[in-house]
Simulated scan of single mutants.
Amino acid sequence: MLLEVADIEVSYGAVPALRGVRLKVAEGEIVTLLGANGAGKTTTLRSISGLLRPRRGEIYLDGRPLSSIPAHTLVGLGVGHVPEGRRVFAGMTVQENLLMGAYHDRRHAREDAERVFTLFPRLAERASQLGGTLSGGEQQMLAIGRALMSRPRLMLLDEPSMGLAPRIIQTIFDVIVEINRAGVAVLLVEQNAVQALRIAHRGYVLENGQVALTGSGTDLLADDRVRQAYLGEDIPIG
């Protein structure tokens, strides 16, 4: 198993955020996390990438416990994190942002940047433009491209479609599928539950910091509880 989250508990001060969360991501999978605001989705991703430390439980990558490994070292082990809000380096160019994604090993930086430009031709057109001057959709492309520069085996994506126009959203989801087909496993937190479940192999539903439901993407799309809570009852399954 590529990633295993085993009974982790995370708190912010005295306030519990995650309580006994368990989930797995296998090689080649897209797995999505659903849940209302405050359910613990972002906290889960931040715990996996080493930005938060669980009070209890453990997170394993290829069976190796990650609790004592710094976040910057996890990048070198194959964990890429695209945070909510994109967080590009506003005062750096597109090209410089991409190079920051390859900070731990720049031997293949030129080759990897060309791959990013192939996935996102718009970034190639703006290679010398400052990240802070890009549109929201372009910044999301840049955030994903920056994570790809580290050659991840597992990519954590936090709300990649937030605030984007429908046409750009479709581009982002098409690229997620393409990245996955190239061999990168994906753990996806996404407000657009329909789109997320349509591309996901499996999914988990978080409620109040706990896993309330799990199943295949298809099964969760058809589940009445999921449809009523997140999708709307008139959403077509296919």
Rank of each mutant, 00 (worst) to 15 (best):
T171H: 00
A165T: 12
V189L: 07
A185D: 03
T171W: 00
V177I: 13
G163V: 08
I176Q: 08
Q170A: 08
I176H: 00
Q191V: 04
D174G: 01
N192Q: 05
I168F: 01
V186M: 11
L187M: 11
A182W: 09
V184E: 02
A182V: 05
A182N: 14
G163L: 12
N180I: 07
I179F: 11
I168E: 05
R167W: 00
G183L: 05
D174T: 05
A165C: 13
E178G: 10
I176C: 03
I169Y: 03
V175F: 03
P160H: 09
I168H: 02
A185H: 08
L188I: 07
D174A: 07
V177S: 12
I176D: 12
P160N: 11
V177R: 15
V184A: 06
L187H: 05
D174V: 00
E178W: 03
D174L: 00
L187T: 09
V189F: 04
A185F: 08
I172L: 01
Q191W: 08
F173V: 03
V186K: 03
I176N: 03
T171G: 00
L187I: 10
I168P: 06
V186W: 01
V184K: 02
G183I: 09
A193I: 09
L188Q: 01
A165M: 15
L187S: 14
E159W: 04
N180C: 08
M162S: 12
T171M: 06
L164N: 14
N192M: 11
E178D: 14
I179A: 08
N180V: 05
R181M: 10
S161Q: 11
A185C: 10
L188W: 01
A182Q: 15
R181K: 15
M162G: 13
M162Y: 12
V177L: 15
I169V: 15
N180R: 15
D174Q: 02
M162T: 07
A193V: 15
T171A: 06
N192G: 05
S161K: 07
V184F: 01
G183F: 12
